[in-house]
């Protein structure tokens, strides 16, 4: 870690104006680790973790979550627990209590992949870390890599649990930038690796995540998040499923599904959703939806099990949701 300057942003405006030159520091749970590994080498850290952050109700009945809110506070908020349980549980599925106390909502959205080749500055090639250098993960130690949204350049999985739930909930990311504020659907926020995996988000230079909006949702209150991992706790997902269903007259009126652990970005299962809507909830339907979503999965030897694991987990979560809704 090189000698660095540390300062604390007084307000969002300062974060925006300094944002081009400084790296923003939230909880630091990912950034400090990557700095120690030499993956990140900022000269100046601007601490935004103390910017005021809470959860406010929006005019249309949704919630606006401050970017600097801690993950722990988000998960514990009674409104999130009651109306968006999949989000609360997704956050609680991630990391440890200590890390959730430190990590911010904005920082969680900005966290980088846990691919071991990305972290290995001294010993491995990684296009995401050094564009054009190659991808050693392919054919290597790759159990935790993605099977959806991969490219020749990169197969790294997005590690966030929280973001998976936000994707399923159609959250909107609020950005503050030199050119003013803008809003972005969260599905447009994280970018597929394609030929330029180093470009991970749609953030423009100098832009800051000020918050995340949860739109009102009639299905979110009975939504679920299930995480499958090697260790029972304190481990990244092999597969996770965030899902919610709303039934009307025995048919699925609305479905929201996102997958974690399998995508290079938090994966919105749009194909599965499309098959579900308007149909009767049956095991066969859920199987078809799961198959459709995973149809184009590309696996490594170490991830050959993931499409099947994702299909099974998705079917099980949908089955439980449908039973609860019926």
């Amino acid at each position: 870690m090189t000698v660095l300057r540390y300062s604390r942003a007084a307000d969002l405006a300062e974060a925006v104006s300094a944002g081009q030159e400084a790296r923003l520091l939230g909880g630091g749970t990912n950034l400090i680790d990557l700095m120690r590994k030499g993956v990140e080498r900022p000269q100046h850290l601007l601490d935004v973790s103390r910017l005021p952050a809470g959860i406010d109700e929006t005019e249309d009945g949704g919630l606006l979550i401050g970017g600097a809110l801690s993950n722990a506070a988000l998960a514990a908020d009674p409104r999130i627990r009651a109306h968006y349980p999949m989000l609360s549980r997704a956050v609680l599925a991630g990391a440890s209590a200590q890390i959730r106390n430190m990590a911010t909502v904005a920082g969680n959205l900005m966290q980088r992949t846990r691919c071991p080749y990305f972290a290995d500055v001294a010993g491995a090639s990684c296009n995401r870390r050094v564009p054009g250098s190659g991808c050693d993960a392919q054919g290597g130690v790759s159990r935790y890599t993605a099977v959806l949204g991969t490219s020749k350049s990169c197969i790294a999985a997005h590690p966030s649990d929280m973001a998976v739930a936000l994707v399923a909930l159609d959250a909107v990311v609020c950005l503050e930038g030199p050119a003013g504020p803008r809003r972005l659907a969260i599905t447009d926020f994280h970018l597929l690796p394609g030929d330029s995996p180093e470009k991970e988000t749609a953030l423009a230079p100098g832009e800051v995540i000020s918050g995340v909006v949860l739109p009102p949702s009639s299905l979110a209150a009975r939504s679920a998040y299930r995480k499958v991992r090697d260790r029972a706790s304190y481990a990244f997902a092999l597969v996770s499923v965030a899902a919610g269903l709303r039934l009307e007259a025995g048919r699925i009126a609305e479905a929201r599904i996102a997958l974690g652990g399998v995508g290079t970005v938090p994966w919105r299962a749009a194909r599965a959703e499309a098959l579900l809507i308007g149909a009767e909830p049956t095991p066969e339907l859920f199987a078809r939806a799961a198959d459709a979503e995973l149809a184009e999965a590309e696996t490594q030897p170490a991830t050959a099990f993931k499409p099947e694991l994702a299909r099974r987990t998705l079917r099980a979560v949908l089955t439980t949701l449908a039973e609860d809704a019926a």
């Binding site: 071991p116 491995a124 290597g140 130690v141 159990r143 935790y144 260790r231 706790s233």
Partner: peptide, 23 residues
Amino acid sequence: LYDERTGRIMNPSLADYHVPAHL
């Protein structure tokens, strides 16, 4: 986990080598 192509250990961390947690 060794990368058998190179002989390098690829999970030299307590995040990626899973010793049992309390749960």
